[in-house]
Design a protein around this nucleic acid. Structure first.
Lengths: 338, 338
DNA sequence: CTGAAAGCGCTAACAT
DNA sequence: ATGTTAGCGCTTTCAG
């Protein structure tokens, strides 16, 4: 299995020494070698089907050309585009990504982190939600290069790439206000995600600015079930007045609201308007087509990889935060208040 | 960055030789070492925060504990569950997956294949669709361990894990026949995917068995656009009679049919019933909720990883094909023929 | 049971 | 411009 032919074989065939072959076959050093010999080495390498063993190279150069990507769950639809964005930047530089899933477990995150470190990853991209003390602090203490994506840095001085969540929420609110809504509700994601707090805060201040009667309801998870359960509680409650519109913390939560509404024989947007967040794939094919905030996930991934590569290239680590613009996509889940 | 402390440090602290530390810290050899020394070594290792450098180990043992996974595109919703299934089996054995996306390009596939081989992956999982000559043949010639998932082996003697596509299509047809449909159509995926052929053939023979008037229309890709375009052509045609039901090659194609129907002011399932394939996430939330064939993607991934690990463990490579059962999920996109 | 020594395949510092 | 040498951190013979 795998590469039988080594640099020594190439050296023998080309009639030069191993060191020369190494120099000839590396971009940065190939100009240190005579044109003729270079040609001879290349010829020999091709003839033998030589491919460098990157494990051996990594041992010597102390770099694995591998980046670890820590996410909660690949099957959450926002992550595939983020991962592809990351990969798009990594690939052109010869890096590969190893992506691992924590499923929201701190223990799993710690274990996976350790395993990535053992693998000598050259850097890490954190896409887990923890706003509190995640493993990031430890990574920083251990001098590991990293960036955050879709979450703030939680006090750790790593760069972070996020969407403009606050603006997304406010745009949703303006849209709703223009439709005549006054009694609005926000389904807030779990507090462990920095995005939850930011969106909830933007909701509160946005309501104040627009003179809306806003109410925040916390959800246990960013999931359809959690959204449905939270909305069920609201609709079953005799004390809370039913809102005419809900701004969900993300699309999954919004989908939960759809389910709850259907269960309660209420229509959307007839009885209640719903706005999601993320514009997950196929959000426009839901029933009804979902009005939601589009977040540039691919670009966020790409940008985070760029920042990480910069660190690896030796640029000074600056704890900057890059905020990418979002866009409200109006479809059919929002309509006039009645 | 990364592990400063080496086996030599541990050896020094424990007062033993590096070789002994290595033996003590490896499952397979730890019984070759005295209880006392073992304890001392472990203590020293913990105290120093030692973690083995898996690059160095890999160079020596000629194994990277890494598996390459080649897929067309992570953002295609069937792949995240497959990848997680793979990972679930790999992780418990200490392997990691490096997943790469070909975007359907043969050139990209070849390049990515080479880069994975250079990385000394211990095995490969092919989830690309090629039924013709993909890179798999070359992998086999080079003695690389591999398995196929969600595609047949295309003549290469690797094991393959697939869903029972033929049965899924036939179950769809039986369902449609029971609803009174007679004039049915199949939207076939591109010929480069083995799944396309299998599903189309099952459609044809299923129609024959049930006495249905079946018609197969090829699509350029497994995408919403391709499905819509194919259906547009059918609906715009004055020569072909409109089918009362369509069995799409996958959910994306089915979604394209939804779009086309809407564009032509036709209803589903009122005017045309639609059945998808795969039961992609949130298929039940589409408009209308999609009747489709559920394929056990996670299990397929897990099973393929199991088969690969078996090969790596030295079991004889058997070109077996594992077919996992599928299930027709009846929702709201199918109804009585009229 | 443990020490000694070799070497996986490669790169980089040092010679020439 | 190229040869020589050392060694990255680990495992694994081979002795003892």
């Amino acid at each position: 299995m795998s590469s039988r032919v080594t640099i020594a074989d190439v050296a023998r065939v080309a009639g030069v020494h191993a060191g020369t072959v190494s120099r000839a076959l590396n971009q940065k050093t190939e100009n240190q070698v005579n044109h003729e010999t270079l040609a001879r080495v290349r010829q020999a390498a091709k003839q033998l089907g030589y491919a460098p063993n990157s494990i051996a190279r990594g041992l010597r150069t102390n770099s694995s050309m591998t980046i670890g990507v820590i996410i909660p769950d690949l099957t959450n639809p926002i992550f595939p585009p983020i991962v592809r964005g990351i990969d798009s930047r990594l690939a052109v530089r010869g890096y590969s990504a190893v992506v691992v899933n924590t499923d929201g477990s701190d223990d799993a995150e710690r274990l996976l982190f350790e395993s990535l470190v053992q693998r000598q990853v050259d850097g890490l991209i954190f896409a887990t939600g923890h706003s509190g003390h995640s493993i990031a602090g430890e990574a920083f203490d251990r001098d590991i290069k990293a960036v955050m994506v879709n979450r703030d840095s939680g006090g750790v001085p790593y760069p972070a790439v996020v969407g403009d969540d606050a603006e997304g929420i406010k745009a949703s609110l303006r849209h709703l206000a223009a439709l005549g809504h006054r009694r609005v509700m926000h389904l807030e994601g779990p507090p462990s995600f920095s995005t939850s707090r930011i969106r909830a805060e933007a909701f509160v201040s946005g309501c104040a600015e627009l003179g809306l009667d806003g109410h925040v309801v916390p959800c246990a998870a960013y999931s359809v079930e959690a959204g449905q359960s939270a909305m069920d509680d609201v609709l079953d409650s005799k004390v809370t007045a039913r809102p005419t519109a809900v701004v969900a913390g993300n699309d999954l939560l919004a989908l939960g609201v759809y389910h709850s509404l259907r269960l309660h024989a209420l229509t959307c947007p007839g009885d209640v308007s719903v706005v999601g967040f993320n514009d997950m794939p196929f959000a426009g094919d839901f029933q009804p087509a979902m009005t939601t905030v589009r977040t540039p996930h691919f670009e966020m991934g790409a940008e985070s990889a760029r920042l990480l590569l910069e660190q690896i290239d030796g640029s000074q680590l600056s704890a900057l935060k890059i905020t990418l613009p979002v866009e409200l996509v109006i479809r059919e889940s929002t309509g006039p208040a009645r």
